[in-house]
């Protein structure tokens, strides 16, 4: 994984949401924390190219997010805060197959890829279920499957344990621990990211701390007081 922010800035309607930022990310597991409205989601969306920089550049695995949006999205999968919005088609296996449409696979190849990813997350029994019938934890796993079926190099997750009860939170946490991909996780659930390789703290649209999780969390607690 090679993500570079080069004086990248995000402005919306004249307001600066993320001040010019220069940094490189290459660690396998990176946590992002910060108060609500601190700019962390904007930062994560810039990696996937969902938000393009108002100034500067964001380069993901060698691809500029403005010039090569499609390639950037193939490199980086994004799990949204609300998995309901991630699942586009109501039947789970249809939705997962939808992500493969642009790859022009045969029906057999597509079905095999869908079966493999459902099996990977232990949710094969949910293949023909409707998304609105799934529990919060199952929905998160479904969202994960829908993104990882395209085999991105980087997985970005925006508050994956948000709105989950304790049981589902544990299920999602164990799943994230078992992921082999490069992952970037935005979370208010500090336990989820405390053993990550690196942690970024955003505050009022600026990078307020960047380093080992223990130090960053300490700084976060100071800011939150």
């Amino acid at each position: 994984m090679d993500i570079r922010f080069e004086e990248a800035e995000a402005r919306f309607e004249g307001r600066t949401v993320l001040h010019p930022l220069t940094l490189s990310l290459s660690e396998r597991r990176i946590g992002i924390i910060g108060l609500n409205g601190s700019g962390k989601t904007t930062f994560a969306r810039m990696i996937n190219g969902l938000v393009t920089p108002s100034a500067g550049h964001v380069v993901v695995n060698g691809f500029d997010t403005v010039k090569h949006g499609e390639k950037v999205r193939a490199e980086s999968g994004f799990i949204f805060q609300n998995p309901q919005n991630q699942i586009i088609l109501p039947i789970l296996k249809e939705d997962i197959a939808l992500g493969l449409k642009s790859r022009k696979l045969s029906r057999q190849q597509s079905d095999a890829a869908v079966d493999a990813v459902l099996d990977r997350f232990g949710i094969s029994h949910l293949a023909t279920r409707r998304a609105h019938e799934l529990s919060g934890g199952e929905l998160q796993l479904a969202a994960l499957a829908s993104v990882l079926v395209t085999e991105p190099d980087i997985l970005i997750m925006d508050e994956p344990t948000n709105q989950l009860d304790l049981k589902n939170r544990e299920l999602v946490r164990r799943t994230i621990e078992g992921l082999g991909e490069n992952i970037i996780v935005i979370s208010h659930d500090l336990e989820l990211v405390e053993d990550f390789d690196r942690m970024l703290l955003f505050h009022e649209g600026r990078l307020a701390a960047d380093g080992p999780p223990a130090d960053t969390i300490r700084r976060y607690r100071e800011l939150a007081r």
Partner: peptide, 15 residues
Amino acid sequence: DEIAAAIDARGIRTQ
């Protein structure tokens, strides 16, 4: 808007 963002993020709509 959110669904459109998800479609973009998942690379479902080719450009």
